[in-house]
Amino acid sequence: MNNLINDGLGLLLLGMGFVFVFLCLLIVATGLMSKFINRYFPEAAPVTKKPATVPSSASAASASATDPKVAAAITAAIHQHRNR
């Protein structure tokens, strides 16, 4: 009986050892792949549009207004929802 417990503990340590080593290798491989991807395939910088210089605030407000068709569709949806 004592021999079976020793064999069981040996298999337990061997199995947990393999899992631990595999997970450590996985962490190292993931880190290396991340460095490789970032070095040879960097992310493109986001392109930002330069805002048009508008001297009056009224034209800036009209530029940020929504499309009239979209506003009409939103108004109709709200009206239909409230009439239920």
Rank of each mutant, 00 (worst) to 15 (best):
R39V: 00
R39W: 02
P51Y: 03
L14E: 12
K49A: 14
N3D: 15
N2Q: 06
A61P: 00
T48Y: 15
Y40T: 01
V19H: 02
N6F: 14
A65F: 05
R82E: 11
P51N: 07
L11S: 11
A45Y: 02
T30S: 14
V28Q: 04
V70F: 12
S59Q: 10
M16F: 05
P68H: 03
M1G: 15
I27M: 14
S62E: 08
V54I: 14
T30L: 13
L12A: 11
I74G: 03
A61N: 05
N6H: 12
I5Q: 13
V54E: 15
L4G: 09
Q80L: 13
Q80C: 07
I37P: 00
I74D: 11
L26Y: 04
G15Y: 07
F22T: 02
I78P: 00
G15M: 09
L9H: 09
Q80P: 01
K49T: 04
S57C: 01
S62N: 08
Q80I: 06
N83I: 06
M1Q: 15
F20G: 08
S64H: 04
L14K: 10
N6W: 12
L26R: 07
M33I: 04
N3S: 14
A76I: 01
A60M: 12
L25I: 02
L25P: 00
T75D: 10
L23S: 08
K50E: 12
D67Y: 11
V47W: 10
F41M: 06
N6R: 15
L32N: 03
A63Y: 05
G31W: 05
R82F: 11
P46C: 07
N2P: 00
L14G: 03
F36C: 03
S56R: 09
I5Y: 13
A72P: 00
Q80F: 14
I78K: 12
K50D: 07
T75K: 13
T30G: 08
T53Q: 09
R39D: 01
K50Y: 03
V28I: 11
L26D: 04
P42R: 01
P55E: 14
